[in-house]
């Protein structure tokens, strides 16, 4: 059992480290490739099925700048696993160094309650919620680019901005039902 800490290591020059956590391990790999391809600085991508991360690699593990939880909305397990993993993150991460990435959000078969639950979780933790089209190459590239935008800020590569500031701008909010907007 080890808590992943945001400040246990020194940052390396021009380097950003990102951890992708996905229970299904479907989207992880292609996203990681896209991330490395699209990056202009050195980006190390680490993959995990769930947290906690094993203790034996603790020494060699670099400072993780951004933790991304990939949730496949078609599977209940994916969400549950994410919820369980969140406990193994140091609270320092929740100051703008965690984000959620959802796949299959436009699928007709997913129960709307699940999306609501994820939204609620993200807004509770003040984290951004990104949606990704993981089925198409363009969608994967775009998802990688968006993660890099957040990663650059989280790793301190953008002057005058901090991860906390960014998270205030992008955090998810829960909405009342917008199915029946009444404009009266």
């Amino acid at each position: 059992m080890s808590l992943l800490k945001s400040f246990n290591n020194f940052p390396a020059l021009n380097t950003a480290n990102i951890l992708l956590v996905e229970n299904e391990e479907q989207f992880q790999q292609s996203l990681a490739n896209a991330l490395v391809e699209a990056a202009d600085a050195i980006v190390n991508v680490r993959l995990a099925k769930s947290l906690p991360v094993p203790t034996k690699n603790e020494e060699s593990r670099p400072r993780i700048d951004l933790v991304v939880f990939i949730i496949n909305l078609t599977s209940e397990l994916s969400f549950e696993s994410t919820e369980a993993s969140l406990k193994y993150l140091d609270c320092g991460y929740f100051l703008g160094k965690v984000c959620f990435m959802l796949t299959n959000a436009r699928n007709a078969s997913i129960p709307p309650e699940r999306l609501d639950a994820v939204r609620k979780l993200a807004s509770l933790l003040h984290c951004p919620l990104l949606f990704a089209e993981d089925q198409t190459p363009d969608g994967v590239t775009n998802a990688a680019e968006r993660l890099l935008t957040i990663l650059k800020v989280a790793a301190g590569h953008v002057p005058m901005t901090t991860a906390l500031y960014m998270s205030i701008l992008t955090q998810c909010t829960v909405l009342p039902d917008i199915d029946q907007p009444s404009f009266d």
Partner: peptide, 16 residues
């Protein structure tokens, strides 16, 4: 704000 600005803001700041 609710219909337009919130989703757009999240998209704007995380996109290219």
């Amino acid at each position: 704000g609710q219909f337009l600005f919130e989703p757009l803001m999240q998209l704007f700041f995380t996109s290219s």
